[in-house]
Write a protein that binds this DNA or RNA. Structure first.
Lengths: 194, 194
DNA sequence: CATATTATGTACTGTTTGGTACAATATTAT
DNA sequence: ATAATATTGTACCAAACAGTACATAATATG
């Protein structure tokens, strides 16, 4: 193993790229924007991301989605009230800092942008969002067995119900200045978990 | 009034542009794409849409939103069961033809794409989506007065509840090959109108 | 028919785009 | 030291982009 040492850490530059893609979407994020945020020259960039912008976006989606899912799984593993954690995930999304208030869900945004442009990227985002749904389903299934949820609807059904609220919030949150009414709405919708 | 006659009808070219923007979004719709679909040369285009692509997009949003809202208002005016019409709007969205299945709601798509790129366009889309919410609210308000809805929650609240389902469907619909479960989910969520 | 007026089509322009070529540089192994 | 190797920075490139300039064409009016 020889050669000039890398100036960058892979996780860090992907994190930076993620910020840019998350803010602007795929098309509107120029390579200028990305390279500047990653603090990388073109030479290094195209050496490490052979397929350029599209590869970077894929890696970014993978990184963010796995990171987020991991955080959620950890929280669920550490709590004694998993249903409450699920509810918190929703409430937290409506209480994000001012800076992030327009960012929405990176996966949902990608599905919207890519639906008719790049089937592979759309499917990748859908894949990870389905994993989130799967996590919901497992929690619900277990909670039903433990009689912590009174609804007897199939876990699969309740999980999709939740994902639909999740996706709704992604857009509704950005329609209005205040989230007050939406918070109440989501509170009611989450009663399916009582 | 003199001069060479126009080759195009304004409504028709805006309709065509709408198809392109709806399919690809703002950024990914090139002027080539648009002009070809509109069957217009650059000369005519920039004469009639002085501010180019952005003006066209605004006009397109106006056109589509007003058209859709008008259709809905007409249906509501002609029925004797307005609540049922509301429900139909949702069900129809999950039964669109194969061709349109990935298109989603033009207004919701625009809010997602423009949130951090163009505040004016985002606000315009949000404005029209709020008008839809307003229509929901009026129907609900009247239905409560007529005791056709049992929920006593504020109409404003129920309307936002519906809009959140609407926005959720925009993304959830495109996550999965089949809409079967989502149809049941939405059916349950719409019970708030019973 | 002449003129004013409006619309059209095409050639052109400067900028930005994503991406490549390649020489210079910094390391490890021999 | 030096050869081999991996990374970096910069200059470059062709294509696509949104938009302009302008000569030509088709009408209404006097």
């Amino acid at each position: 193993m020889a050669g000039r040492p890398r100036k960058f850490k892979e996780d860090e530059v992907i994190q930076k790229a993620c910020d840019v893609f998350w803010e602007k979407g795929y098309a509107a994020a120029s390579s200028e924007d990305l390279l500047q945020a990653m603090n990388m020259g073109k030479g290094s960039f195209y050496l490490h991301f052979k397929d350029g912008k599209e590869e970077l976006f894929k890696r970014t989606l993978d990184f963010r989605a796995k990171q987020s899912l991991q955080k959620i799984r950890t929280r669920l593993a550490e709590t004694n009230n998993k249903v409450e954690v699920l509810k918190s995930l929703f409430h937290e999304r409506l209480n994000t800092e001012e800076y992030f208030k327009n960012y929405g869900c990176f996966l949902g945004n990608t599905i919207v942008e890519m639906s008719n442009l790049n089937a592979e990227l759309k499917e990748l985002a859908a894949h990870y969002l389905k994993q989130l749904e799967q996590v919901f389903e497992e929690v619900i299934s277990e909670a039903q067995e433990n009689k912590r949820i009174s609804s007897t609807k199939p876990p699969r059904f309740i999980a999709r119900y939740l994902i639909n609220i999740w996706n709704g919030m992604n857009i509704t949150k950005r329609m209005n200045g205040s989230n007050d009414i939406l918070k109440e709405v989501v509170g009611l919708q989450l009663q399916i978990l009582d």
